[in-house]
């Protein structure tokens, strides 16, 4: 009230800007920012890219740098040691044994994770009574948090009162120390993993099967193809690309295994099931050697990168042909 003269010009500017905005919006389709115009696309990308830079790019760079130092989690950057950490990992028995465990796990779990998923999908992709229940049963474990999985299985596999040993006992097979004996522990870990994660691959196969046009089967039936021939000459060949993709996804996921092994056996007995990711965790968070731990991470990173590049190639081919 006391300063009407100061009030008026402001309002007038407001009105002016406003009209200006509207004309501009209609004619040039740009948000109004008289002076410097930032294209709208930039604003749409900024939030994602900021997160990308801070939480993905920064740790990648920080990791490379750290791997060249003997940094400790206890504090301090440590001193520059060049490639010493990388040299050390080449002669570290724990690296080769845990990488070996990861490889064993991957080689023995992947075939089951693919074949069982395929069998499940082939059995249930056509309508049958109670199909919804079967689908739920196959996929449900994938929805269960890993800790629940390991709690339930630790209980099932218990040596003294366990469900499995109870059944084995009835047919006269002595108690097996499922999680305490090296080979049995690896078998248990693989068994639990197949039970827990096969549902994901199952759904991928199911989606692929539903993408095969009915006419293909009709045409082949007219030509007198048997169900067996249809399976081996039509269905399985058409699932080849899906299988390739599942294989690559599965390899990457299996190489990164940690959760269920850590929770079931803590990598034991005597490190017989410890995967590489758990060793990285042990060196970094228990041994506090962040520098060395980062170096192992990076060596491992490159292995996965190579596989992931194959994946990307498969994806882009899929995109191209679709």
């Amino acid at each position: 009230m006391s300063t009407p003269s100061a009030d008026n010009p402001t309002r007038r500017t407001d009105v002016a800007t406003h009209t200006h905005t509207r004309t501009r919006a209609i004619t040039t389709r740009e948000p109004s920012r008289p002076g410097h115009r930032i294209p709208p696309g930039v604003w749409f990308i900024v939030p994602f890219f900021a997160l990308y830079v801070v939480f993905l790019l920064t740790p990648i760079i920080l990791g490379v740098v750290t791997s060249l130092f003997n940094t400790s989690l206890a504090g301090g950057t440590g001193e520059f040691v060049g490639l010493d950490n990388y040299r050390e990992l080449l002669s570290d028995d724990a690296v080769s044994s845990s990488a070996g465990n990861t490889l064993t796990f991957t080689l023995f779990s992947t075939p089951f994770l693919i074949v069982v998923a395929l069998v499940m999908a082939l059995l249930t992709h056509r309508n049958m009574p109670a199909r919804w229940l079967f689908r739920l049963a196959y996929f449900m474990p994938f929805l269960v948090p890993v800790t629940v999985v390991t709690m339930v299985w630790t209980w099932m596999l218990g040596t003294d009162f366990g469900f499995f040993n109870g059944i084995l006992d009835r047919v006269g097979i002595g108690p097996i120390n499922w999680l305490g004996e090296p080979t049995a522990a690896m078998v248990s870990v693989i068994m639990v993993t197949v039970w827990w994660t096969v549902g994901f691959n199952y759904l991928l196969y199911l989606a692929a099967l539903q993408g095969i046009p009915e006419e293909v089967y009709e045409a082949s039936a007219i030509d007198g193809a048997s169900a067996r021939q249809q399976l081996f000459r039509i269905t399985l060949p058409l699932l080849k690309r899906t299988t390739g993709l599942i294989l690559v996804l599965q390899l990457i996921a299996s190489l990164k295994v940690f959760d269920q092994i850590y929770l079931l056996t803590q990598g034991g007995p005597n490190f017989a099931t410890r995967p590489i990711l758990e060793y990285i965790y042990d060196v970094g968070f228990t041994g506090l050697r962040i520098g060395y731990s980062s170096a192992i991470s990076y060596a491992f990173f490159f292995v996965i990168l190579v596989i992931a590049l194959v994946q990307l190639k498969l994806f882009s081919r899929r995109e191209g042909s679709a």
């Binding site: 696309g41 993905l56 740790p59 990648i60 990164k256 940690f258 968070f285 991470s297 990173f301």
Partner: peptide
């Protein structure tokens, strides 16, 4: 906008980064 294709290429490259492997530097950060 200018530079969009470069940003997209960087984004796509991020798909192949195995995030779990980065936990140690990420924790440090």
């Amino acid at each position: 906008f200018r530079g969009r294709n470069v940003l997209y290429a960087i984004t796509i490259a991020g798909i192949i980064v195995p995030a779990n492997v980065l936990v140690v530097p990420l924790f440090q950060q």
